[in-house]
Design a protein around this nucleic acid. Structure first.
Lengths: 299, 299
DNA sequence: GTGAAAGCGCTAACAA
DNA sequence: TTGTTAGCGCTTTCAC
């Protein structure tokens, strides 16, 4: 076991209170004493035990982060941004990846509740009642979702998708399709509604092609429906699905965009690494990012 | 604040010890009492405070995971596997993404040390002395690295790369190149040595093309050196770099594999999503995975 | 400016 | 089988 506060106190010839103050309220300690305490502490390799501290202060210095799937390249950028800010504020992160299983989400929140000061629920799939329940046990911030009056960070899907529809309509497409993500995805519902209203504005048809898992394979699986729907352009719930769809289209001998236009949403790093690059609606990850359609060579 | 052990004890008409035992040693409690305690606890929404428990048991129920870059698609699969097993064992995970900055690694370990029962260092970039220091403060398991006698999980780079060299030599390549990852990467060094001995075995030339960041852009940047080296096939430290290199080669008008063969290592999901698929040495992520070269259309 | 003492929520002897 | 007691490492009144 490593040094504790009493070890430092003894070695520095002060009380534990003084050592404690040296770390949490240094200006309450006389300069010379402070210096000595800190020096001794460093020598002992003393680091305050945050769990013990949290027990009494009620603050743990931890935050919890719930994600549906870290393997979706959209989420690492969010995680990294959170990590960076957390570090700056001397917070540490509990990560829970739910593997798109919405039933485990609330359980994760509850089991983490006591060990964190608050949680960030990123694209949570749980229903609004569960979100309320989660929020009743600890501070919650939502990402990619709105629910009640809870603080949340979302993007302007509405105008983004209006841009997409305008873009496609300008290219002459009159029959659009939407390959939706999971039913439980708030974003997917918002995107569907946004597409619907944008389509009405441009008097284009919008065919809803059903729900698929928000991954590469989900996109692949949507291909059959896409092909039999008679549309000329399709918007996928996210880039991964768009890529899966492109893959399957090519497998079946079609060319994108010659035979069908495909548009994704997110602008994951992969989107621009492909050749030709995936046309995608960029989701700004940082405050300063402008909303934009990334370079398009496939629509 | 939520219910604590004394609330449950009072409501159930027992002592706190009994409540405690009901949760941590249920067979030491009489069946009826146990049932009543658990019922009352459920009604109160009582969940044991793991921090308080850890203070006395010395076990936190948490493990720490250190990664160089969660945005590299190789790592999410590892993270997810760890998460799954952790959940089964009722462990929670502290995640630290170091952003490939080796200097912050030891600090992360130390700041997490008191709050976890042990740490998993995945592809750590720190030097052996630092690893020793980390291991002296808490149990450590290494992934993708060996150091002293510490428990570690590594793959058989040696035979994998022999397969790669054999494959390329069989195709007629006599001048191979290696685009290395960071100097501080243990894997990159092992891979370089493995390539060297495999090349000698096959009497092919091996040109070392220098170190680059282990990402897409690192691969792109390596392109110039690759082109001026006169090699006909190149092995990159990982898939991301291989993909960056392929991207830049195409930008400069070359075709892969017609003008140059490119082989990656890892078999990240993206590798097979591309068209043509990236030739890559697959790193088995789970016990049962066989070692294999994935479907190759570009070498 | 510093120390003594109480207590955060819980578990682990030890008794009963 | 159950309760009593002490104490994990720390912070925080309240005296001095």
């Amino acid at each position: 076991m490593s040094a504790k506060i009493s070890d430092v106190a003894a070695a520095a010839g002060v009380s534990t209170s003084t050592v404690s103050r040296a770390f949490s309220a240094p200006d309450m300690v006389e300069a010379v004493t402070l210096a000595r305490v800190l020096r001794v502490a460093a020598e002992c390799g003393y680091v305050p035990n945050r769990a013990a501290r949290g027990l009494i202060t009620g603050r743990t210095g931890n935050i919890g982060l719930l994600l549906p799937d870290i393997a979706n390249p959209f989420f690492p950028s969010i995680l990294k941004a959170i990590e960076r800010r957390a570090m700056e504020a001397d917070y540490q992160i509990f990560l829970a990846d739910t593997d798109e299983k919405k039933d485990v989400e609330l359980g994760f929140v509850k089991s983490l509740a006591k060990q964190v000061d608050g949680m960030i629920l990123c694209s949570p799939r749980m229903d609004p009642v569960q979100i309320r329940e989660a929020a009743s046990s600890l501070p919650i911030v939502l990402v990619n979702r709105r629910s009640g009056l809870l603080p949340s960070i979302t993007v302007d899907n509405e105008s983004g998708l209006r841009m997409v529809v305008d873009h496609l309509a300008d290219l002459g497409h009159a029959h659009l399709g939407y390959v939706a993500g999971p039913r439980s995805s708030w974003s997917s519902q918002v995107r569907r509604r946004s597409l619907r209203s944008a389509s009405e504005l441009r008097e284009t048809e919008l065919v809803e092609l059903g729900h698929f898992e928000p991954m590469f394979d989900g996109g692949r699986r949507s291909c059959a429906k896409v092909l039999q729907s008679g549309i000329t352009a399709v918007i996928a719930y996210n880039d991964l699905m768009a890529m899966g769809l492109c893959y399957e289209l090519r497998e079946s001998g079609r060319e994108v965009p010659a035979d069908l236009s495909v548009v994704g949403i997110d602008d994951i790093p992969m989107a621009s690494m492909m050749h030709p690059a995936l046309t995608t609606l960029s989701i700004p990850r940082r405050r300063r990012d402008a909303r934009r359609s990334s370079s398009s060579s496939s629509s």
